[in-house]
């Protein structure tokens, strides 16, 4: 009994290490509230442990994301959240960085606004691709959709970005 318990704990720890931050990020893309995302992720993993759910880190990742999605949906139904990503946007250093902080902040706000214009699924997919550098196939597996669908979503996201950011910065 004890040995089985120890083994179960090791498996759970592995699942946690592999997916906790990914799930938490995914939830953040959905609600733009880091506290809420953390809480829901913690609740989800607590539930997995308490219900002794057998979750295979490879086969069942779509299930993990589905459960997280359901939980955040029911949370957001009760709590109205104003989406705003500007606080967590970072701009990597490159040759053509904006000259002043004001411009820098403005860019963040614009970027956030574009994100808000995207349909939910498009935004989530885009941020998973951009933020975590996941391959399309990997995102498709996690969200349980076809790679084609991911490609479509990414195209739309990039089109929106190109159109809005170019117009604003020009």
């Amino acid at each position: 009994m004890l040995k089985a318990g120890k083994l179960r704990k090791e498996e759970f720890k592995k699942l946690f290490d592999t997916y906790f931050d990914a799930i938490r990020r995914y939830l953040y893309y959905r609600c733009s509230d880091s506290e809420l995302a953390s809480d829901v992720a913690q609740d989800l993993f607590t539930r997995i442990w308490e219900k002794s759910m057998q979750i295979d880190p490879v086969k069942d990742k779509a299930l993990l994301y589905k459960m997280a999605s359901d939980m955040i949906v029911s949370k957001l139904r009760r709590k109205k959240v104003e989406l705003n990503y500007s606080g967590s946007i970072i701009i990597e250093e490159s040759g053509n960085t904006p000259e002043t902080n004001v411009e820098y902040e403005q860019l963040k706000i614009q970027y956030s606004e574009v994100l808000l214009k995207m349909p939910e699924k498009v935004r989530t997919t885009f941020l998973m691709s951009r933020g975590e550098e996941l391959k399309y196939a990997e995102i498709a597996e996690r969200l349980n959709v076809s790679v084609k669908a991911i490609e479509k979503r990414m195209n739309l996201a990039l089109t929106l970005l190109r159109r809005d950011l170019r117009r604003e910065t020009e």
Partner: peptide, 29 residues
Amino acid sequence: KMKIEPKWKRSSEEIWRDHFEEITSVDKV
């Protein structure tokens, strides 16, 4: 060049240590 990087109050290691370490130490018995 733009990325989203959520500002977590606690890292996943801290969350494990503060919360999951305890609940997983309670044996299923």
